[in-house]
Design a binder for these strands. Structure first.
Lengths: 225, 225
DNA sequence: AGATCGATCTGAACACTGATAAGATTGTCA
DNA sequence: TGACAATCTTATCAGTGTTCAGATCGATCT
């Protein structure tokens, strides 16, 4: 009995890490085995390929080799599936920011690095990033989603507090919040405008990402030296 | 002959300003008379009610009292109609910014006022604003759209140039561009995050607009004094 | 071991969407 | 008046998310 349960756990873990089922038709029988995570993986792939607007729940089911009605047994709706992906996106973002917070860089450089990391995150995963800020595609009032978003922002908040105190300026909650909103807004807007192609004319050779990554540090450092 | 054409012009002008056809069934006969502008008005109303995601070309046709296929004779596609609305949005935004540029405020206050005007524009017309930055819903490579966007940004650019020279700091093209990107990114990101509800937790009494309008000036002035 | 039962998936609906094409209608112009 | 081009209707197509009765399967209980 006990050994059986143990083996089941190992098998389930192997299935998750091995990422099977990406090819349709790999299924053993009527039951998929781990459809929930297979759907999430398929959705992440689709999001990476076509962006948030090219997403389609039926296409995800198709890629998982399953009928259009199958996802309903694992997610309340398309928004439910997308919400999971948005949550893991905020988790990844928080991890990226935390990695910088744990360095021994001076506060100013730490702040700048976090801003750059925010933009890099969005450039690497445009579809996922834009999804994270499309509340019309996500479940409203989802506690885990809100919590994940706040966790990511806490990373920035702590850095801002250090930055202010290192500057010898007041670091009360109101001042910290204002600077948080300021830098978050700037990197977020910069990223959104980039992803929407509004800076296309500024990059002569057509490589927007290169332009963005080269100009952004100068912009941030000029604003918050 | 000539008087007839003249009268036709007057009638057409009256129709445009009077905004008829908002109620379905007001049509005289088989032909609508001024369906193109009626569709634009209906689309603007729908956008104001349900936002960019609630938009539907069929619903617009329904509101104009016309069949689903009718819009195809006036716009190449749904994106064609939405592009017209985005263009007029950039025109309005440019006018708002220009109104401030024509005042005799000192450059710093002028810059701050333009940032605040940008956010106010988006708060007043959230659906239209978000549409303006959803290139997946608009016609790609539309010259008039790109031109309208650039015109709006020129208003900001001139103010930035004044601001830099008034500060006695270098105002070459590269520096002006960087500051333009910085302030545009911040107000744009601030607005996007607000409209996506990411600041909802910060406004205690639930009135986000009031919170935003009260905090934004402090944030901008703290960043660019 | 065998029956049962809940979880899982299918397949077919339903009500939508945007786009397209053939035909009906109308205004205009020669 | 007749012809023509612009305009609008109607029907159709392919696609979407969601729902639901029924098929299938794994696991659990007797």
């Amino acid at each position: 009995m006990e050994s059986k349960h143990c083996i089941d756990g190992i098998i389930a873990a192997l299935k998750k890490t091995a990422r099977p089922g990406k090819q349709a038709g790999e299924r053993k029988g009527y039951h998929h085995g781990d459809l929930r995570t297979a759907l999430i993986h398929a959705a992440e792939d689709l999001l990476a390929e076509r962006g948030a607007e090219g997403f389609s729940l039926r296409e995800v089911a198709r890629r998982a080799g399953v009928s259009p009605g199958a996802p309903a047994h694992h997610f309340s709706s398309a928004a439910g599936l997308l919400t999971e992906i948005a949550i893991s996106g905020f988790d990844q973002l928080a991890a990226d920011l935390q990695r910088i917070a744990e360095t021994d860089l001076p506060p100013a450089e730490r702040l700048q690095a976090q801003g750059i990391a925010y933009v890099r995150f969005g450039l690497k995963q445009p579809g996922r990033f834009q999804l994270m800020f499309r509340h019309d595609l996500l479940l409203p009032d989802n506690d885990r989603l809100h919590a994940a978003g706040k966790t990511a922002m806490k990373e920035l908040e702590e850095t801002v507090r250090l930055y202010r105190t290192a500057q010898g300026r007041p670091a009360d909650d109101a001042e910290v919040m204002r600077l948080c909103l300021a830098i978050w807004s700037m990197v977020h807007g910069f990223l959104q405008l980039t992803l929407d192609g509004k800076f296309a004319a500024l990059a002569p050779d057509g490589s927007i990402d290169a332009f963005v990554v080269s100009e952004l540090p100068a912009i941030i450092k000029a604003t918050w030296p």
